[in-house]
Design a binder for these strands. Structure first.
Lengths: 333, 333
DNA sequence: TTGTAAGCGTTATCAG
DNA sequence: CTGATAACGCTTACAA
């Protein structure tokens, strides 16, 4: 591969002149510049970005770590980030945090980007705290880690869940179950607290038998449905901590001959694309994904500009009422 | 940020010793190593990946360029790539090729990764040819560019479309329309050729009025439906060049009061997740996404190992029959 | 076993 | 306006 040296040699000038010419610095004679450009073209010269990054100690790219790098769920998020970063002449590279010890942590440890936006509970908080510095700020999505150069943008999971369950109560359901994600996921925990608060406010209590365990996957929801069916005891409604589980749950229940929503209402969380396609269409909580992304990018640039100790930003969610949680029909049971 | 120099100073050794110790090279006295490790820990030292990459002229990461970085469509593809690269201790970073002059081209020009897998028609062929070198091979997905260090993995779009339309004919439909993507997309072109071949074989001809123009988006399909409705002339069946358009089309038609599939059959292409959720469920062509990814990764590593002039690999597709293209009911029109 | 020094490909400072 | 030269942070012969 041709380097700046080769170009200099071919053009018969020094490498510094080549650098000046190629970077459109003033003070280069037009004639010289032309000579350099010609040489570069002839050699198919491409500057080595890595060397450049090392010299300048900046990459003009920001990293994005997602749990999975797939799913329409992230589409808007990425767009929100990209719209903002592109305007600042920055690139975005995405990597996923799948696997036991995600390889993506290499990227957060070794400063291969100028900063990071992380949406993943997998990555260790200590690691994040260690990696974050003035010249390598980190913005967390739906998660908090205290450090000067880390900030977060979140949705109010508790409030969102509270409102969702409130709707279920208002529609006339009693026996409302909670289908949760992994115990240690903070999203899950906060959604559970919201569920709990809503029940308490209505003078009810959380019953262990109505606390179902899932794992944020469709399969998890499906499994929960099967267990419910096997036990033969059904609640009147279920609030699932995410749409994927809600969908698996609905499919499992329907296969078991349970009519949704007549025999059981379901509410989800996230408003993924499928939510409006599954039958019945899913009542769910919409996260402002685009805004989540753009806010994160905005905060990251402020951090990059030297600000620190930024407060976390909390975004509002929006309850989307569809067909899976209609007013409860009065039946003569 | 602490550098290797700082660690050396604190540990009271030379920087080369630090490097040796940190990289678990033999020939370092245990005691010295301990001293170095302690110093590194105290300084919260993180090696600078960029400097390392520059020195070693390799990054152990491969880049992936996708049209959009979103959509469940790519989920399996990415997994296919990742499973393979992870086994080789490589990382994957993804970037999207959206926008007029995608910023991601910077990554392909400046050798910031050891190679690239590109799924995008947006990126200029000349650029690809210029960038590809023995130490920066490129694998193209569903696209071909002739160069020693570029190869492709593709599906046989023509054959897949041919088979899909053959099914439609077999089910008894005559008047079969084609809803295409952008004219210049080679996928689209080849799918059209397959459509054409299938019709010809059945002794029919392609009629201009049944060649609908879309753009691979749901909105495009929706628009086509509206135009069809406005004209008042409907074909018996439509083969859409991708699922998104097919779905938009179905929604548009249904809104116009047309029963699918009774009044019009539809077949799509891709088998995205939604295809099995939309009503009616969509008959479509499944691309072997995982295999597409893993094959691409495999080829890339062979290229990286010094092989060249690799033949393109063509993968088989699979027709998924669902409800949107049943045998045509005999009606007394 | 450890240190010295060269070099990866740039950019930037400073003379000339 | 152009050319030496140092430096970015690291790895690795080679020397000690």
């Amino acid at each position: 591969m041709a380097t700046i040296k080769d170009v200099a040699k071919l053009a018969g000038v020094s490498i510094s002149t080549v650098s000046l010419a190629l970077n459109n610095q003033p003070h280069v004679r037009a004639e010289t510049k032309e000579k350099v450009l010609a040489a570069a073209r002839r050699l198919n010269y491409q500057p080595n970005g890595i060397a450049r990054d090392l010299k300048l100690s900046k990459t003009e790219t920001i990293g994005l770590i997602l749990p999975d790098l797939a799913g329409p769920f992230y589409s808007e998020l990425i767009r929100g980030i990209q719209d903002f970063t592109t305007a600042n002449h920055y690139d975005v590279v995405a990597m996923s945090a799948i696997g036991e010890r995600p390889k993506s942590i290499r990227y957060i440890q070794e400063k291969r980007t100028d900063g990071m936006i992380i949406m993943s509970q997998q990555i260790d908080a200590t690691l994040i705290r260690q990696a974050a510095r003035p010249d390598f700020p980190i913005v967390l999505l739906n998660r908090e880690v205290s450090s000067n150069h880390v900030t977060s943008v979140m949705i109010d999971n508790r409030k969102a869940a509270y409102e969702a369950v409130q709707l279920m109560i208002r529609q006339g359901y009693s026996e409302i179950a909670y289908l949760g994600g992994p115990e240690d996921a903070s999203d899950n925990r906060n959604r559970f607290y919201g569920y709990q608060a809503s029940l308490h406010e209505a003078g009810r209590t959380v019953e262990p038998k109505w606390c179902l365990q899932g794992d944020f996957t469709k399969e998890g929801g499906y499994g929960a449905a099967k267990r419910l069916l096997a036990e033969g005891m059904l609640p009147q409604a279920i609030f699932a901590a995410n749409d994927e589980m809600a969908i698996g749950l609905i499919e499992g229940l329907q296969q078991g001959g349970i009519g949704i929503p007549e025999e059981m209402a379901v509410v989800g969380f996230d408003d993924i694309q499928l939510a409006s396609y599954i039958r019945p269409t899913l009542t769910t909580v919409r996260q402002p994904m685009y805004q989540l992304g753009s806010t994160a990018a905005k905060l990251l640039f402020r951090l990059l500009d030297g600000e620190s100790n930024l407060d976390a930003v909390v975004l509002d969610t929006h309850l989307i009422e569809r067909d899976s949680c209609p007013p409860k029909a009065v039946t003569q049971s």
